[in-house]
């Protein structure tokens, strides 16, 4: 019963988020601030993880393909497919659920605890539109992060494979181009947009409707990470079933 109530309140939150709009110039400023806080500030960690995980995928594939009959190009092919289909969109989104999701929950939760949300409401401002809508719009730029993760993941794979002596540069490039299906990119970015929406709204719900004090803000952040990850994994399964099977 509690879960049903929570799902209901999540959808009611969405309805209020997309109504009663704040003044346009204020919203514009908030959106740019959120792009900086949520997307640009994650550039470093996403690049770092993308590059090294790409390298590890290549190393693991190369070390497990010891049969001389299997062409070396398969290493690059496997790296490309793993990174574009799953690692960049899904794995990075789970990491973002920890970084961006916790940030959203704790910042909105702290505002709830210190009556800042009440202050907005008393002033006649739709606090959900003011707080959540700019985050949803800012995370429309999230695929930009995922594209960088894809590029750096493959680049990391190339460095690890070529400079580790597992594959030549020519073989790696050939492997990357082999059986490339452009729709896989469409699939990856479609699910990235869905994950971005989950990343913006689920942690916001946990922060906005939290009750209690500072301790509960921490608990809400943890819960928000768990539920955002669960929903990303579930959405991943459903989208894959719908688009690829």
């Amino acid at each position: 019963m509690k879960y049903l109530e929570d799902i209901g309140s999540y959808f009611l939150m969405l309805r209020r988020t997309f109504s009663g709009f704040t003044k346009a110039d204020v919203l514009r400023e908030l959106i740019f601030k959120e792009i900086n806080d949520l997307v640009m500030s994650s550039l470093g960690i996403v690049s770092f993880i993308g590059f090294f995980v790409g390298g590890v995928i290549t190393l693991q594939t190369a070390l497990n393909l010891t049969d001389p009959i299997i062409p070396k190009e398969l290493i690059a092919y496997a790296t490309r497919q793993s990174i574009i289909l799953e690692f960049a969109p899904t794995f990075i989104s789970i990491i973002m659920a920890g970084k961006v999701g916790s940030f959203i929950t704790s910042s909105i939760g702290s505002m709830r605890v210190t009556e800042q949300i009440d202050a907005l409401e008393v002033m006649g401002i739709n606090s959900l539109n003011y707080l959540v809508f700019p985050k949803v719009i800012a995370l429309l730029t999230y695929p930009f992060l995922i594209a960088i993760a894809m590029f750096l993941g493959i680049f990391g794979g190339l460095i690890a494979g070529v400079y580790g002596g597992f594959i030549s540069l020519d073989e790696f490039i050939r492997g990357l181009q082999e059986d490339f299906i452009p729709f896989h990119l469409v699939y990856a970015f479609v699910k990235t947009y869905v994950f971005a929406f989950i990343l913006a709204t689920v942690p916001a719900w946990h922060g906005y409707y939290m009750k209690g004090g500072a301790l509960e803000v921490g608990k809400a952040s943890t819960k928000s990470f768990v539920w955002t990850s669960v929903l990303i994994i579930l959405a991943n399964y459903i989208i894959t079933q719908l688009l690829l099977s």
Partner: peptide
Amino acid sequence: MLREEIGMLFQGGALFD
């Protein structure tokens, strides 16, 4: 419009950090 005519002083100040 009524809310615009209301000023509120909260217990903890509720200033935006």
